[in-house]
């Protein structure tokens, strides 16, 4: 048994390991993508500029309403078709659509929709006086956002965002439907090839579990950092 899980000539070890690495890469990439999109969307929704608010609200509604699996399929197949048609129209050949980029963009879009609501709520929870003081001392727009709003809302967003991260680790498995070799896809291939379904699915599950365990430690240390300035620290 050690043979098929190991790193020998018949072992699936290297493939599983690279699948796990891909899962981690997709998760990190999509999370960062989601944070950026989420922050911008939250800022747009709070901007009080009507077109921006409508746009941001439309995006969050749609991306939270449609199953991620469906979004991945639509974006991967429809997106590549549209892109290729556009390229043909200007006389160029097919564009290689990478499963990796699709995974990060699609998952990032979905994450961004959820993250924007968490971040918006956290910003609204900042005592207004702190923002007003920043106004009074000349902070405007980007400086205000970067120096005051972002750091003060983080402790209030961290709980929701760590939930998103946990869900994202597992949602990254959805990308296997477009044939991209992340952890689950690799495990499925190994299981089919060796006919050892139970073994490989349990191994995949254990690897996902290990990832969440490590994440928990990371999240706790991030939360601990806010204890420096939050008088009541949540342990």
């Amino acid at each position: 048994m050690g043979g098929i899980l190991g790193f020998g000539p018949n072992g699936w070890g290297p493939a599983l390991l690279s699948g796990a690495l891909v899962t981690i890469e997709i998760t990190i990439g999509a999370f960062i993508c989601g944070l950026v999109i989420g922050t911008l969307t939250a800022a747009a929704r709070l901007s009080r500029v009507p077109p921006l608010v409508v746009l941001a609200r439309g995006y969050t509604t749609i991306c939270r309403a449609i199953p991620e699996l469906l979004l991945i399929l639509v974006l991967y197949y429809l997106g590549s078709q549209l892109l290729n048609e556009a390229l043909h129209a200007i006389g160029l050949g097919d564009a290689p659509i990478s499963g990796f980029a699709t995974a990060i963009i699609v998952l990032g879009l979905v994450q961004g929709a959820y993250a924007s609501e968490i971040i918006r709520g956290a910003i609204l929870a900042i005592p207004y006086g702190q923002i007003e003081a920043a106004h009074a001392f000349g902070h405007a727009r980007i400086l205000l956002f970067r120096r005051i709003i972002l750091p003060t809302m983080l402790p209030m967003a961290i709980g929701g965002l760590s939930n998103l991260w946990m869900v994202l680790i597992k949602d990254s498995a959805l990308i296997s439907v477009v044939g991209y070799s992340e952890l689950l896809y690799t495990a499925k291939q190994a299981a089919g090839y060796t006919q050892r379904y139970f073994l490989f699915y349990v191994v995949a599950a254990a690897v996902y579990y290990a990832m969440t365990l490590v994440s928990n430690i990371g999240i706790r240390s991030i939360e601990g950092r806010f204890g420096r300035w939050m008088p009541v620290r949540a342990r």
Partner: peptide, 25 residues
């Protein structure tokens, strides 16, 4: 300006609060 409810920035130390506007603004 000095406010009724202080409105210090909670994520900055005392010294950083005092230096914030001079440095960044």
């Amino acid at each position: 300006m000095v406010f009724q409810s202080f409105n210090l920035w909670p994520h900055l130390t005392v010294l950083q609060n005092v230096m914030e506007a001079p440095i960044h603004v």
